[in-house]
Computed example of a mutant assay.
Amino acid sequence: LATYYSMLDQPRSVVRGKDSMQGTYLGPEFSSNDIRSKLTDLGASFTELNANEIIEKTASALADGLAIGWMSGRMEFGPRSLGGRSIIADPRSTTMQKNLNLKVKFRESFRPFAPSILREDLESWFNLDCDSPYMLLVADVAETKKLSVKDESEGIEKLKIPRSIIPAVTHVDGSARVQTVHEDTNPKYHALISRFKEITDCPVLVNTSFNVRGEPVVCTPEDAFRCFMGTDLDILVIDNFFLVKSEQDKKLSKSYKDKYELD
């Protein structure tokens, strides 16, 4: 691109205030027929739902405190999972950060997670007044969402103290690395968070990359199912296919826990 624009002097159009990359969902996607075939070949137990049903069932599972592997549409390109290949959960939980780290990511319990928030609710929840669609900006949680804390603890004990009403995505200094979710670039993820908000009055989800420590982010349905069966994720959603861990054949389980050394 630098050569094309700078050396060859080609015209470049920049529209300020608009995400010309459209969320960078540039990776592969899979048809329903392809997903159905691959899950069947893997021996998975699944339910195929329509678009409204998958949003309703997933939002309800999130509100019930379940950890979900979410694979939807095209894969993201870049350094963050942005709702195409994500592990998502309820940020209001005081135990979710620790549980996801130890039971899903298999890494140290103190590692922080980031929030996905509806763009239209951003300024009510974080001290940020601009788009952050790529989860690259850090902002303090809004004062109205923080909890009054008298913290005299030290070290890792600080993690045990809730600092806001969304403790799973709030760092010990009261900040978070925010992803704003936009209806025009990821309508399905936006619809899911919107439904979660209707149920819980919280327009925020925990969003972390859909992988375990030491492996790349999942790309294909096979990748997603293997990660699902090798971790303590409760639910797997692949587009409009809904899978429940307790309904899977235990012989398909794969242990990741001892595969990689700690960082």
Rank of each mutant, 00 (worst) to 15 (best):
Y4C: 08
M7T: 14
D9W: 03
S13I: 14
S13W: 12
V14R: 13
V14L: 15
G17S: 06
S20R: 01
G23R: 01
S32R: 06
D34V: 14
D34M: 09
K38D: 06
T40F: 02
L42I: 11
S45A: 15
T47R: 12
L49F: 15
N50C: 08
A51F: 12
K57P: 06
G69P: 08
E76V: 00
E76D: 05
G78P: 11
L82V: 12
S86L: 01
I88L: 05
M96P: 10
Q97L: 11
K98M: 10
L100H: 00
S109W: 11
R111G: 02
P112Y: 14
F113Q: 08
F113K: 13
A114C: 15
P115A: 06
S116W: 00
R119T: 11
R119W: 09
E120A: 07
E120P: 00
E120G: 02
E120Y: 04
E123Q: 12
E123T: 08
S124Q: 14
W125V: 05
L128E: 08
D129Y: 10
C130S: 04
Y134P: 15
M135W: 01
T144M: 03
K146F: 02
L147A: 03
V149W: 08
S153H: 07
S153Q: 02
E154W: 09
G155W: 06
I156S: 13
E157V: 02
L159E: 15
L159T: 00
I165Q: 02
I165C: 14
A168Q: 14
T170I: 09
H171Q: 12
D173Q: 03
G174N: 10
S175G: 01
Q179R: 04
T180H: 13
H182C: 09
H182G: 06
E183G: 00
T185H: 02
Y189H: 08
L192M: 05
F196A: 12
K197Q: 07
N207Q: 00
T208I: 01
V212C: 11
R213V: 01
P216V: 02
V218D: 08
C219Y: 09
P221T: 05
A224M: 13
F225E: 04
M229E: 01
T231F: 07
D234C: 07
D234A: 01
V237T: 13
D239G: 04
F242E: 05
L243P: 00
L243F: 07
L243G: 01
V244M: 08
Q248D: 10
Q248H: 13
D249F: 02
K250F: 04
Y256K: 08
Y256Q: 09
E261V: 12
